[in-house]
Amino acid sequence: MMSLDVTPGLGARLLAGDLGALARAATLVENGDPVGRAVVEGIYGRTGGADVVGVTGPPGAGKSTLIDALIDELRQRGRRVAAILIDPSSPISGGAVLGDRIRMSRWDRDPDVFIRSMAARGHPGGLASTTAGLIHLFDAAGFDPIIVETVGVGQGEIEVAHLAATTLLLQVPGLGDGVQAIKAGILEIGDIVAVNKADLPGAEELVGDLSMMVTGNERPAGWSTPILLTNATTGEGVPAVVDTIEAHRRYLDTSETGRLRRESAARSEVFGLLRQELERESPLHLQNKASLWHELIDDVVERKRTPSAVVATLLGRDGATCR
């Protein structure tokens, strides 16, 4: 409780441009610390203006290298850029090696670029559970856009699309045939698709395959998913990607889709926090009822109760057993 007294100071320093305060607030949010939550609550009213751009795609597609090139282009356009780079945590030790910064170290001396690595800490879906909180902090600190790099994704990690205004999906030639492109999931969430490593054989064909597929996708009116060719290493095609991100932002600002996206982001964040609270709080609530908890789990193992009946009990919906 003591430390809460200092919170206004931390939030005020963050708003005044203190990058150390921003970094420390990010740590507190990431750790689920009540002080971090209080900082976000203090600054939340000043957020919502920054563009949030999700960058996703399979491991090795060149996400980090492309983000480095995007930062270069955005800096030339006078933008202050933050990037949140997410890597997986070890399911065994809980540790992580966060190596995405390696491709971006030329920005370490630029005060208008802030890069933060984040471990997913067991959260599925390609992000960490507290990524939205970090976005709010960077937004309040005056960074715009905020780029979020997901872990290298397979076919189902689509959470970034709920969080970002614009989702940029990276694909590379040589990962599979045309059937991969018609599977549901990842391909449907790209507002913009970039075929990276444009110098590799098969890049042009992949653009053709993808163009055919995305025209069939059900997308909101007024925006058809562009398929762009990029070479992140040389920077080729990168200005066009930034132009397209800006065009998508203008589209969102003037269409019903933009409002729906903001609603979806808010819903997704509230549900995420709710899930986090349930995970954190349930065992605590049960601390003085540890035997009941074991009993319930034993009952599920022995098929005396169903998992959903136990949930009802925990939520107090069966009226009696939990009290």
Binding site: T27, L98, S105
Partner: peptide, 28 residues
């Protein structure tokens, strides 16, 4: 360190003192 449960930010080669300090600050 990863196997010991730590989160390790690796910066890569050829870092200047300023780059290391900036990364340490941003990553807290």
């Amino acid at each position: 360190l990863r196997d010991a449960g730590f989160e390790v930010v690796y910066t890569g080669l050829f870092q200047t003192p300023e780059m290391i300090a900036a990364a340490a600050l941003q990553e807290d």
